[in-house]
Each structure stands twice: as C-alpha cells, then as structure tokens.
Design a protein around this nucleic acid. Structure first.
Length: 507
RNA sequence: GGGCCCGUAGCUCAAUUGGCAGAGCAGCGGACUUUUAAUCCGAAGGUCGUGGGUUCGAUCCCCACCGGGCCCA
C-alpha cells in the first residue's frame, strides 16, 4: 500500500509529478484546468434532460433549418470542434451516441462563446439549448448555456485513425473505447452475450451459484494453476482452473439445475486465443445425459447469435458460420480412423499405436496411452479443418477423467466437444457419478502426473466423499465465453474481447 | 522454450540500408456565419524503446535488455 498523498492546501501548489507542465500539448490544458479550479471550480453533478440517442429518436428526419422549440440539456465528451468565424460546431459523445452542438454567436453571449472556444478535444461538458437542425439538416443542440464538467489534460488519439496499436489499445482501454467505435461495439456485444447466456439458462430453470475461486487444491480441469499464499493459515492456495467439482457438489446437495459464469485462471502461455484469466460458463443438469445437453447447446448458441450478432449466420475471418441447429455430429474415433486410414483399436499393441502417431507427425510422450494418442491425432489431423459447428462425440476415457464411461464402449466416455472454425467452444459429459470409478480415474491421473504429466488432476478426496453420498445421473457443460464472443464479434484475438487483458507492466 | 518481425512527433504512418529526420491529423497563430475527417494561410513540434559497442560520425551496423506481434513446440 502506498502512503496517501496529503491533500494540497490553499497555499500549497499542486504537485505536477506527471510532468504535465513540461509538454506544450498538456501545459496549455493544465493551465486551463488550474484556471477553472481557481475560478468557479467544477460542478459535482449536472442535470441532463436528454441523451444523444433520445434526441435522434425524437427528432429523426426533420427538415433542414427546423427550430423545434424544445430546450434540453445534454452532457458528454467533446469531440471534433469546427470553428467558422462566429459559428462553432462540435460533436458531443455520450453513452448513447453523438449529438452535434451548434454554437452561434448571435444566440450565445460573448463570454460563453469565448469559453466554448477555450475548450479542448476530450473535455467533459454539459450544454443547454434548443434542439434544431442546421442548414445541412444535422440535428443539433444550439447552445445557450455551457458548463465545463471535467478537463481532459491529455491530447486524444487521432480523430480519424483512432488508436491502432494493439498494445496501447489494451493498456489504455479507455482511449480505445473513446476513439474506436468497433471497440465499443465489441465490449457491448460481449456484455450482451453474457446477459443472453444467463437469460437462456435461467429460462430453463437453471440457477446461478457462486463457487470458490481460492482453493487448497486446483481440480476439475486439465491445466496448471496459479499458486498464491494465505498468510494467516500459513499455506499455499490455488486459483480455480474450473468450477466443475463444486457445481457437482451442489447437484449432490439436491440443486438439480445449476450454472456459473465465472472467471477461470490457468497458468499457461498467452497467445491469440489464450489469456491467463478468462470466462467460462459451466452448467449441470440432473437426470440429463450428454445428448440432452447437446440439443440444449444448439438452441442456446443459435439464440445467443441472434441476440448478439443479429442473426444465426455470422461472418468470421471472411467466411460464414451458421449457428442454426442441428449441427454436424461425428465420433472422434471415426474421424481419426478416416484421417489415418486405420480403424482405432484400443486393444492394439501400444508400440504399434505410437508408431502410427509418429507416422502422422505426432510424437507421443512416454506416459501417453491409446486414448491420449487418439486425442492427439484428432488435434493434429482433424481439428483445424472443422469450420461449421460440429460436435465431436465420445472421447477416449483416458482423456476424460470426469466423464462417465460410454454405455456401449468401455474405452470411450460419453463426452462431446463442440468445434467451430478449428477451435473448441464447448465440452460436455454425461457426468461420472460412480465414486468407485471416479476414484480409479483419479488414481490413473495421479499415476500420469507421477509419469510427467503436469496437467493431470490431483486426487480430490473431498469430492469423492461427496460422490459417495450419491449424485444423480447428470449432464454437464462448459462453454468458453471469450471465444464465443470472438466468433460473434468477428475478432481474431482474445485480447480484443477482454477489456483488460493480462500484460507485462509497461517499462 | 525455438525462430522471424516491430518499437520514429500526442495519434496514424513515411524515409534514411552510416552524413542536419518527413507527412497527415491533433495542438498553436491568422482568415471564415452552416460545418460533418470543414477549408485556406502561417509558424512550431523529435532522447528515432533503453543501455552499451564499432566509427571521424549511429535512428540506420553489432551486442544486451525492455515492451509488443506472428509462426512453431
């Protein structure tokens, strides 16, 4: 914690630690700020009677030169001032859009006109006046009053090119948002996606619960966790890598339809589809199996696409994607067999399977069994080529330690992943509810970890205890929310859909 | 972890492959009573990411570091 800076007294000059006085672009603004403080100061509130969007809705399509007789007050950030002698035009942006300010010396008194001339691009202002259209027909507020609400001390990004640099846009997201309409749209679309997902689940009788982020053991997924330290308890703790095992405890407790939209943390590399913290939706429904969940996901994805992107068909990276159900369904083993030209055989000698993998450019690690190799072959040979939404069904049990064994094939699990545009967007199981089988699966994970698999699950004895009290048959689901937003906004980089992505500190 | 690339004015970008660093926008001064990225005139604005090295001379070549991007594992 930093020491609080003492408030400057009347006889104590403001500290210019930021160096604002040292640069001509900021020094002028700083001088105006100090003059404002020395004079009237800044108001604590402003009574706005209309937003930009309301004005456009109320007065759309007026003839040029109309005087509506309606007086309003508006507020927002000032952009793009054009001065023409005794006329000034400015664009006021508020949270709903923009409205033109029309400043006419014959209407506004000289002092207020001069104060408007002193404004800088980026200042927050309140203004009052009559709603009119100009000779060119632009809806405007012809102002008769002006209040400076807050001074912008720094110059804003280029009014035409905006802020382009991905790094700067991420570090100073406020500048990105105020300069780039696309960024505002993306942020708002993300909010709509999350809201719509929540609405869809609640409409189906699901209830959202909050499960712990800070854990003594990170389980429920295949990933490395972040470690932190609890001082009073004198022990290491971990940030969650999934919400799965806690939500299933709720099902054991009798909550039949549960979900959570929550932040997940995985201690992995950062690239165009991975951020260390991201948002996942998980849901669990008692008495359902993975095929029930599949049909629900088709409906929900279509509904979310329509709500957030305006239709079930979206454009991503120059190609169309159709979210209208039903989606293709393929078994993973069938696709891998087609890609390798050999049927998948879980009874084949492991050395033969390893050789097959190598012949397709996949180097198996020592601890990989048949199932892991099948999954690796799928990832290497098949996944990238999938474009339209496709359910990949029935993964090997070996790579699905929390999924129930397939009712027809003990080597496979009742599990699917939804692939779109070469990436995974959802993951669902008929949940493993047999505590004895679950214990064996955990023990296999422990063995894999001992053999060098750092992402293998630790054994969660407390979760097994819950299962031993009985969990009904349950269909579970995980959806990567960030990636879904990428699809629906056409953004190729996860950093575009996370407002404040993880970055190294600036030098 | 490996390879490749980028960092130049507040913003968007050039150029120089060793010899005083350029434009548009923004900002500043001026003109203009209907602009829409207003227009026109003028004058400014630079630690060329940081630190070392080579050189008479480095934004440019070399090394290290910082930040970012892309590809691969």
């Amino acid at each position: 914690m930093t020491e609080p800076t003492p408030a400057p007294g009347a006889d104590q000059p403001l500290d210019d630690a930021a160096g604002l006085a040292d640069h001509p672009l900021t020094a002028r603004r700083l001088a105006k700020h100090e003059a404002a403080l020395a004079g009237e100061g800044y108001p604590y509130r402003f009574s706005r009677t209309a937003t930009a969007a309301e004005l456009h809705t109320r007065h759309g399509g007026l003839e040029p030169g109309t005087e509506t007789g309606e007086n309003v007050t508006v507020a927002g950030r000032l952009h793009n001032v054009r001065a023409l002698g005794n006329l000034l035009f400015g664009v006021l942006r508020d949270g709903t859009g923009t409205i033109q300010l029309f400043v006419d010396r014959s209407v506004l008194d000289d002092a207020a006109f001069a104060r408007f001339e002193e404004l800088d691009h980026g200042d927050w202002i309140g203004a009052g006046g009559e709603v009119v259209t100009t000779r060119r027909g632009e809806l405007s507020v012809r102002i008769t009053s002006l209040t400076l609400l807050a001074k912008s001390l720094r110059p804003l990004p280029d009014k035409w090119h905006g802020l382009q640099d991905l790094e700067l846009r991420s570090r100073r997201r406020y500048l990105d948002l105020l300069a780039n309409e696309r960024s505002r749209d993306t942020a708002l679309t993300r909010a709509r996606v999350v809201s719509e997902l929540r609405r869809e689940f609640e409409a189906r009788g699901y209830v959202e619960f909050e499960t712990p982020v800070l854990l003594t053991q990170a389980t429920g997924g295949l990933a490395r966790p972040f470690r932190t330290r609890h001082n009073a308890l004198e022990m290491d703790m971990y940030l969650r890598i999934a919400t799965e095992l806690y939500l299933k405890r709720l099902v054991v407790g009798g909550m039949e339809r549960v979900f959570e939209i929550g932040r997940i943390f995985r201690n992995e590399g950062i690239d165009s589809t991975h951020n260390p913290e991201f948002t996942m939706l998980e849901s669990y429904e008692a008495y359902a199996d993975y095929l029930d969940i599949l049909e629900m996901v088709e409906e929900i994805f279509a509904a979310v696409a329509i709500a957030a992107a305006g239709g079930a068909t979206v454009t991503y990276q120059g190609r169309t994607l159709d979210f209208s159900p039903p989606y293709r369904r393929e078994r993973m083993v069938d696709l891998v067999a087609a890609a390798t030209g050999r049927p998948v055989d879980f009874a084949a000698p492991i050395d033969d399977v390893r050789a097959l993998a190598r012949s397709h450019g996949v180097e198996p690690e020592p601890h990989w069994g048949h199932g892991k190799i099948v999954e690796a072959l799928f990832d290497a040979l098949v996944a990238d080529g999938i474009w339209e939404p496709t359910f990949i069904l029935d993964h090997p049990v070996e790579v699905s330690p929390l999924a129930r064994r397939h009712r027809d094939d003990p080597d496979l699990a009742e599990r699917w992943e939804l692939f779109i545009a070469g990436a995974e967007f959802g993951n669902a199981f008929s949940e493993l509810n047999d505590p004895l089988d679950q214990r064996q699966r955990f023990e296999a994970q422990v063995a894999a970890r001992a053999a060098g698999d750092e992402e293998a699950h630790p054994l969660d004895e407390d979760y097994l205890l819950a299962l031993e009290y009985g969990m009904p048959p349950t269909g579970g689901l995980g959806i990567g929310v960030d990636r879904l937003v990428m699809l629906l906004t056409g953004q190729p980089h996860i950093r575009e859909v996370i407002l404040f992505p993880t970055l190294r500190p600036e030098a």
